[in-house]
Design a protein around this nucleic acid. Structure first.
Lengths: 350, 350
DNA sequence: AACGTGGCATGCAACGATGCAATAGCTGGC
DNA sequence: GCCAGCTATTGCATCGTTGCATGCCACGTT
């Protein structure tokens, strides 16, 4: 309708929706040639290219992504499924992923699963349709088997959890070692009854399991018996739960003298709880977290923590995904990247 | 190619890419009817609907969004341009927006502008092509005039800054009043030399300007003279800058006895700086922030702050955008929503 | 002189879905 | 018994782009 008008006279008023056809008409070439210029692929004579570029400039042409996607079968979008963007660790990670994705020409589309299994499944099963070329999932509530069912549908990279069945690509740090190191650090600083805070047995939170495992290993190495009352379960990973769980620990007949929290957020809540009971951190109670979120660095006391290399995690995840999407990798077998981590002792452990 | 195969025998192996055509063939109806069922719009006989639904189930059909978008001219995506997802305030806000958008059937696509004007412009000018139906922009570095140039291209809602020329829809709180209240709170608590921390004169950060204005109003009302050395400029809104700026204030011959920080992050850095100099907050120095991020609630001391109603901001922004996108609103004139805010006195001001 | 080669440019068809308008089937009223 | 007035269903064209195959030309080779 307007199309023909725009084609005929479209010089300045072409603002809204110049198509390839319009550009072609203005430049006096075929639609196909304009497309070639835009995708600067095949041989185009310099003179023609100039003319087309000028026409593009003049019409303000922008490729219609929907059409391009339909034709190419790719969308240039990748999904990122995380529990919450608002939580610092995932926020920081999302930021890095978005940045890194942009460099590869991808746009990231965030879905918040809030750790609910149904939502994570819905996402994987492709409710979004053919909307994304691939998916990066950070599952808190999904079992490895669940994931296996869906990787056949589209490229999936899983963050933060090792899938024992090896059906999907994974990026994670060595959680057992990291947790052991954190606990050892507490012991080295003189702790005799270190607690673990952050179990989530009701969810399929394998990351938490691994960290618990590392914690127990450290105890064993030090010749200390595991005590189940020192292993605190939480319902979520927010500060409020850290606060609550810490109070429960302090209410024990024999309270701990140190706490390894599975995330920094939990640790920050725990610190707060300890201090409002008049305890000094680290004097009376040493606390270490996990994630190295920015809040921990500027709190009082600054929070000791284990820092996963988030940058590396982001890069690796995209690399794995790229390999699958561009089909550089045909074989089914999954790959695993183990990202670096680093123990960062700060004030909260003395 | 595979299409015909799938159409003919496609019962179970239709996993990868069942189209409308395949479903239609299986259900023994026309493609158009299947489409009608999917969009449950027009009259479809119950029996037919059942048959089609079964076929959809069996084939695992998912609508191809690219095709749908091409046809409809809408993408179902809205862009969200914020400086950083990793920063708590924007992370929390993004989370709420994503959630609210999902309820309206939209998917949010986050772009991080890092406060760089070129990036914000690039985004507005539609580098993303016809990729998004609308845009929510939280500009730190863009002047109102810049925005005016682009609103004609697509629906835009601006967050956190009032555009005096009235070219775009806006959602913001009453920053002047809020800042005045925060400063008044400091004065009420006994402050005599309250400082303002967070100016960004080099950027077109109008939000900061408004908060400074409110701060000065409060001083004037209290009969205190404004002192330019108490108005601290920052290069970014991160904790580190809050830390640095606070130290600068403390190095003054006559340091302040209270500080109004323009964001909670700055405030957290400021608290840290004060305490590492041996000052007690709030005993020696009262500090109030702005944003009500979660970190502030669980720090020691807990941070007094001004809490914008983030939920309302998110809802309103989407409402305004929806009106534009669905064309319920044709007239050019811009609308402004002033969201609620609330002063939250906590420990850091005594 | 005839032929092969490679650089440019083009036309046609198709990606998968929906808007439109037309058709087939049905009921009820006179 | 016939037609008006429905509802249910369908075919065709189309959204804007790119893959494929081909046409055309000029040049270098035998």
């Amino acid at each position: 309708m307007i199309t023909s008008l725009a084609t005929a006279g479209g010089l300045e008023e072409a603002r809204m929706g110049a198509k390839l056809k319009d550009v072609a008409a203005l430049a006096g070439v075929s639609v196909r040639t304009v497309s070639n210029v835009v995708n600067d692929a095949t041989h185009v004579a310099p003179a023609t290219r100039q003319r087309v570029l000028a026409a593009i400039e003049q019409t303000g042409y922008r490729p219609n992504l929907a059409a391009r996607n339909l034709r190419q079968g790719r969308t240039g979008l990748i999904g990122l499924a995380i529990p919450e963007v608002g939580s610092p660790y995932f926020g920081e990670l999302a930021g890095l992923l978005i940045e890194a994705a942009q460099e590869r020409g991808w746009t990231v589309l965030i879905d918040q699963t809030a750790g609910r299994a149904d939502r994570e499944r819905r996402l994987l099963s492709g409710v979004e349709g053919h909307a994304v070329d691939g998916l990066i999932v950070s599952p808190w509530a999904l079992s490895p088997a669940d994931i296996g069912n869906y990787v056949s549908t589209m490229p999936v990279v899983v963050l933060g959890e090792i899938d024992p069945e090896g059906t999907a690509d994974h990026v994670a740090i060595d959680n057992v070692t990291a947790a052991r190191e954190a606990t050892c650090h507490l012991l080295t600083q003189g702790a005799r009854r270190p607690a673990a805070l952050g179990l989530q047995p009701h969810l399929h939170n394998r990351t938490a399991e691994l960290r618990l495992h590392g914690y127990r290993q450290a105890l064993q190495t030090a010749g200390l018996p595991p005590r189940s009352e020192l292993e605190q379960t939480v319902a979520s990973l927010h500060r409020a739960e850290g606060h609550r769980a810490m109070e429960a620990l302090l209410d024990l007949a024999q309270p701990p003298d140190a706490v390894f929290c599975f995330t920094d957020e939990l640790a920050l809540g725990a610190v707060r709880a300890a201090r409002s009971r008049g305890l000094d951190v680290p004097q009376d109670l040493r606390i270490i977290g996990f994630d190295d979120i920015e809040d921990g660095r500027y709190g009082t006391p600054s929070l000791s923590t284990v820092a996963p290399d988030k940058q590396q995690i982001a890069e690796s995840a995209l690399q794995l995904l790229a390999d699958r999407i561009y089909g550089r990798l045909t074989h089914r077998s999954s790959r695993q990247v183990v990202a670096r981590h680093q123990l960062l002792p700060r004030e909260s452990t003395g």
